[in-house]
Design a protein around this nucleic acid. Structure first.
Lengths: 120, 120
DNA sequence: ATTATTTATGCGCTTATCCGAATATAAGGA
DNA sequence: TCCTTATATTCGGATAAGCGCATAAATAAT
C-alpha cells in the first residue's frame, strides 16, 4: 500500500494543526490569547473551567507550537506566537456565516411557499 | 452560568467546521474534490478505503454543507461548493511548514553546539 | 527546611469517534 | 417484476478524547 506525498502532508497537517482545533475550549483559548498573553489561572477563571482541564488543553496547544510559554515566577504566561491560526479560524467563521445566511434564505423561502400555498 | 456570544459562535464554529476537519481522510477528500467532482466509488478507490467508510465521511461533510451532492442515475457526484475551506487549510499548511522550518533550524543548532562542545 | 502559590500530571471513568462487514435503500435497465 | 449498480445505514467492537478529583512538581518567600 503506497502512501502518496499529499497524504503524508495532510496526515501531518491533521496531526499537528487540525486535531488541536478539535475542541471548542481550545479554539476559545486561542482567541483569548490573540488579545493578550494570559496565565493558566486567568484562563481558568475567565473560561470558568477547572485549572487541570485548562492545563491539559494548553499542553496540546503547546506540543503543537500553537502557543508559547514564558515562566514568570511560579506562574506561566501563555502567548500566541503565530497569529495566522486566528486568520485561518476567522476564515472558517466567514464560511460558517455564509452557510447560516444561506440557510436563513432557504427557511424563509419555505415559509413564503407555505403561506402562498395556504392562499390557494 | 452565563454563556457569552463569542463562546456560542465558537461552539458553532467547532461543531460545524472544525470538527469536520478532525479526520485526515476528510481533509484529503476536500482536497481531492477541490480538483474535480467525484463519485463515492471513485473516492473509495482513489483513497483505497472501504466504500462504507468513505460514505460516512462524506455524510459528515455533507451535513455541514462543506460538500454538495448531485444525483446522476444511481451514482452521486460530490463537489466542493465553497473553495474557501481549501484556502483555510492551505493557510494551516503554511503555518505547519513554518513550524517545520523552525524545528529544523533548532535541530541543526543543537548539532552545531554538540560538535563545538566535542572540540573543547 | 517549611510553606504558599501556581502549574502539570496520574487515575478512573464516561463519552465520542472510527472502523469493517453486512444489510438496506435508491435508481435504472432487461 | 427482477436484477444490477451505486450509495447509505446499521451493528458491534475497538480506540481515542475529555473530564473531575487528587496529587506531584516547580518556584519563591519566610
Amino acid at each position: 500500500m503506497e502512501t502518496k506525498p499529499l497524504e503524508i502532508e495532510i496526515g501531518l497537517l491533521h496531526e499537528r494543526i487540525c486535531s488541536a482545533l478539535g475542541d471548542p475550549t481550545r479554539i476559545l483559548i486561542l482567541y483569548m490569547l490573540s488579545e493578550k498573553g494570559m496565565f493558566v489561572n486567568e484562563l481558568s477563571e475567565a473560561l470558568n473551567i477547572p485549572q487541570s482541564s485548562v492545563s491539559r488543553h494548553l499542553r496540546i496547544l503547546r506540543e503543537r507550537n500553537l502557543v508559547a510559554t514564558e515562566r514568570q515566577g511560579t506562574a506561566v504566561l501563555y502567548t500566541l506566537p503565530d497569529k495566522r491560526i486566528i486568520v485561518a479560524l476567522d476564515l472558517m467563521r466567514e464560511i460558517l456565516s455564509s452557510q447560516l445566511r444561506q440557510e436563513a434564505k432557504i427557511t424563509s423561502a419555505i415559509h413564503n411557499q407555505n403561506s402562498s400555498e395556504k392562499k390557494e
